Amino acid sequence: MLKDKNIILGVTASIAAYKAATLVRLLVKEGANVKVIMTTYAKEFISPVTMATLSKNTVLSDFFKHDDGTWNSHVDLGIWADLLVIAPTTANTMAKMAHGICDNLLLTTYLSAKCPVMHAPAMDLDMFKHPATIRNMDILRSYGDLFIEPSSGELASGLHGKGRMEEPDLIVKEIIGFFESKKKN
């Protein structure tokens, strides 16, 4: 169902970033063309080499390459994509998206995207249920963004509760379901 679909996977700075590797692998296995945009701090959690190898594309992070000046156009990326998936989406990234702050390549691509946007939040339970996070999610929903609710369980903090990024296979099922419903309409 994802054959030849162009998907941008945005990876933000969360311990759940390790799940993004499996997500990329599954999307590519389903036939999707995947480009990965990682925030600077996401690269502290998972290697761009891993993501590039699995996606079969260079990982994008900066607006331009410092050694030769090649520009990574957020506008071109926003036009290319059939879907922008941010997994994991942190509270910080949601807050910036909700309020139009674009201080990295992922955020400027988000603001330029002509395609639907899907979030898979990941954060500690208190962050997830904080009124600011809830308000920012409501703002993003009002823009038409879609959410894959996090699951409950043991969190990186050692606490138990809602905030775990959903498992990659379930995210892929949601993505397939999204395209199937879009095809029917």
Score class of each variant (00 low, 15 high):
Gly69Glu: 10
Thr53His: 08
Thr108Gln: 09
Lys56His: 14
Thr50Asp: 01
Leu27Tyr: 01
Trp80His: 10
Asn104Ser: 11
Met51Asn: 01
Glu154Ala: 11
Ala113Pro: 01
Val28Ala: 03
Ser73Trp: 05
His66Ala: 14
Lys19Ala: 08
Leu170Ser: 07
Met118Ala: 08
Ala98Ile: 09
Ile37Pro: 08
Ala120Gln: 00
Ala16Gly: 12
Leu125Ala: 15
Asp145Gly: 01
Ala156His: 08
Leu159Cys: 02
Leu23Lys: 05
Asn104Leu: 08
Val75Asn: 04
Ser55Arg: 04
Gly158Phe: 10
Thr40Asp: 14
Thr133Lys: 06
Lys129Val: 11
Asp76Ala: 15
Pro131Tyr: 08
Thr50Ser: 15
Thr93Ala: 12
Val36Cys: 04
Leu23Trp: 05
Asp4Lys: 05
Lys114Leu: 14
Leu83Tyr: 03
Lys3Asp: 05
Leu106Met: 13
Leu60Glu: 05
Val117Cys: 07
Ile15Arg: 09
Val172Glu: 03
Gly100Thr: 10
Tyr143Phe: 15
Met38Asn: 11
Ala52Tyr: 11
Gly161Asp: 09
Ser157Gln: 09
Asn72Ser: 14
Ile15Lys: 02
Met1Pro: 06
Ser55Ile: 12
Val11Gln: 09
Ser181Leu: 14
Thr133Glu: 02
Asn92Trp: 06
Ala98Cys: 06
Thr22Arg: 10
Leu9Arg: 07
Leu9Gly: 05
Pro168Asn: 02
Ser142Cys: 04
Phe147Val: 04
Ala42His: 04
Met127Thr: 06
Ser151Trp: 01
Leu170Gly: 00
Leu111Trp: 04
His74Gly: 12
Met137Asn: 06
Ala132Val: 14
Leu77Phe: 12
Thr133Met: 05
Ala91Pro: 06
Gly78Cys: 07
Ala87Cys: 06
Glu44Asn: 13
Met137Tyr: 01
Arg25Met: 02
Ile37Gly: 01
Thr58Gln: 13
Val172Tyr: 01
His66Gln: 11
Ile46Pro: 09
Lys3Gly: 00
Trp80Ser: 04
Glu180Asn: 13
Asn92Tyr: 09
Glu174Ile: 00
Phe63Lys: 06
Gly144Ile: 10
Asp169Ala: 09
Arg25Asp: 12
Ala21Leu: 00
Asp68Arg: 02
Thr108Met: 13
Asn72Phe: 14
Val59Gly: 07
